[in-house]
Design a protein around this nucleic acid. Sequence first.
DNA 1: GGGACGATTGTTAGCGCTAACATCTCGGGC
DNA 2: GCCCGAGATGTTAGCGCTAACAATCGTCCC
Lengths: 343, 343
Amino acid sequence: MAARPAHTSASQIPTMADVAQLAGVSHQTVSRVLNDQPNVRAETRARILDAIRELGYRPNSAARQLVTKRSQTLGVVSFDTTLYGPASMLYGIEQAARDADYFISIVSLRAMNRGSVLEAVDRLRDQAVEGVVVIAPQTSAAGVLAQAAAGVPLVGAGCGPAEQVPMVAIDQREGAAMATRHLLDLGHRTVHHVAGPVGWLDASGRAEGWRAELERAGRPVPPPLRGDWSARSGYAAGRALAADPDVTAIFCANDHMALGLLRAFHEAGRQVPAEVSVVGFDDIPESSYFTPPLSTVRQDFSELGRRSLELLIGRLEHPAPPPAEHVLITPDLIVRASARPPA
Amino acid sequence: MAARPAHTSASQIPTMADVAQLAGVSHQTVSRVLNDQPNVRAETRARILDAIRELGYRPNSAARQLVTKRSQTLGVVSFDTTLYGPASMLYGIEQAARDADYFISIVSLRAMNRGSVLEAVDRLRDQAVEGVVVIAPQTSAAGVLAQAAAGVPLVGAGCGPAEQVPMVAIDQREGAAMATRHLLDLGHRTVHHVAGPVGWLDASGRAEGWRAELERAGRPVPPPLRGDWSARSGYAAGRALAADPDVTAIFCANDHMALGLLRAFHEAGRQVPAEVSVVGFDDIPESSYFTPPLSTVRQDFSELGRRSLELLIGRLEHPAPPPAEHVLITPDLIVRASARPPA
DNA sequence: GGGACGATTGTTAGCGCTAACATCTCGGGC
DNA sequence: GCCCGAGATGTTAGCGCTAACAATCGTCCC
């Protein structure tokens, strides 16, 4: 009723001692209630709970952390949370963390290089995180992970292979092979590829899967074009490819580039899918509304995030020796209107 | 040289006392060096720095926090970090926080309702954040902010108006008016509108700006269609609008819906921009590669994030009384190919 | 030449909490 | 009737750090 109950201490915010005094017990009993320990009489517990409510008491996390040496916080290092993939992974991570009762602290990378990753992990360590998830899909990150993992439990999400570091990734090669095979099965003689930028694992994985599938089928392997994931670069690749009458099927390393490519073909007057078939990768929410709706390979980023956090928490609870566990998730082919048998 | 220097304490990780002993000073002098306090001889400082490096010492943040009562951490509550807007804001916030030497802890909202926001802020408070940024563009969040702000400094980013709570937002009405005016200036008699979902501030702001501009110009105000931000819903709206031969200009409340709408018009054989002009909102990276490239209104989400964090930090340093400061950022009209004078 | 003063360093006392141990209470067994 | 043990609660001692105050040192001034 009154504005604010008076506390013992002069300080504004109530401490455990204030609660104890109000409930007429020792602070230790309050602590027991807060930590769900047995051997507290039900009536005492209720009295303490009342006192907590009345005072609006909140445990001081720093004090608890100081003595338990646990921060209940996990760190996430991510490259560019604006991109669809990382953003979705982060979302999955956050959900999983909350379910497991951990807080999430994020640091994004300024630049993609070894020092930057190390610095980010360091920053997180200064904050006493119990473990770290690194979302860094560049090849350059692969080497540095093992180094960063010294000193703090760490898992990679969609990162490059590193023996020492546990990780979860989507099987890019298999996804690319599925896309390529789909086009081949439709009857195309071969499949052209618009690859992602050098230095990205996803880019090289997809290019490898595409190439391997072509070779397995004994088809010619045309030189891949290279984009930078953006629609702009897909558009540029599309202009080049549209000028080549031999091109009948194209596998784009991501949906954004496919969008730009679609636009270039439209401008060039080459019909998709009547004359040329296109398959993308990622299955961004918009891709079913492209013109035409894009066949693509769906990656479940959110699950990737969730799984990597689960892996981290598993490691936290049961530290395991190397070699570290690697989880591979298989993506799904989504068939829409942008690919059909050649004319 | 040797694997790991022995510490005084049996514990594995070195404390300030270990550093002090190695450097031959008291722990307080080490503390002074760590906190950049004056009155430490240069030579002593160097010796301490060496000892820190040799031991690989890291200050214990919990201990510091316990005594200084500052966590150096700011919280971010966000609705769906997978969406382009919130993801970009988060990015801006993270950058600004790092520059100001704060950590960022995130919590995302499960559902959009009062309780959910309160719970998220509470969770952050349990973690002793010094302040909170809320990214919640729903009208339902507006009311709850004032309540959540009791107990912790809080600012809204792109949130609804709340007298008591400082906030930064983009001028949706003005952006929508710009888009509408652009279409009117092109010579269209009136402008149709595909609005965002009920309950979203951005949706109602844009609808209001559109309506106001139409009324200002003395034009008829056609009933707006309503989407849910997705390309799917834009497609549905597009099908309806494409059937109406009177429609010559459309303002879509976001680019994703514009994408779906473009697709519907394409399927219906109604040419954009030859027969119908379209303007979107957001300027997502892909919109310049739509078919046709989309004229739209650019919102600088990243700056919005940055500014809101700056506002929060300002409040932290100089607590101000209500009424709280409200910052409005004006968006920019981006003219591309999707709008032209009527035939 | 003695004491004051500023620069430098050390000492002490918590911050609010949990872990470990001490104490107290009560009921049952012999 | 007394002792034992389990359940309930209290007491004590830090966790690693910073703030406040105390001590030391050299130096400068009259």
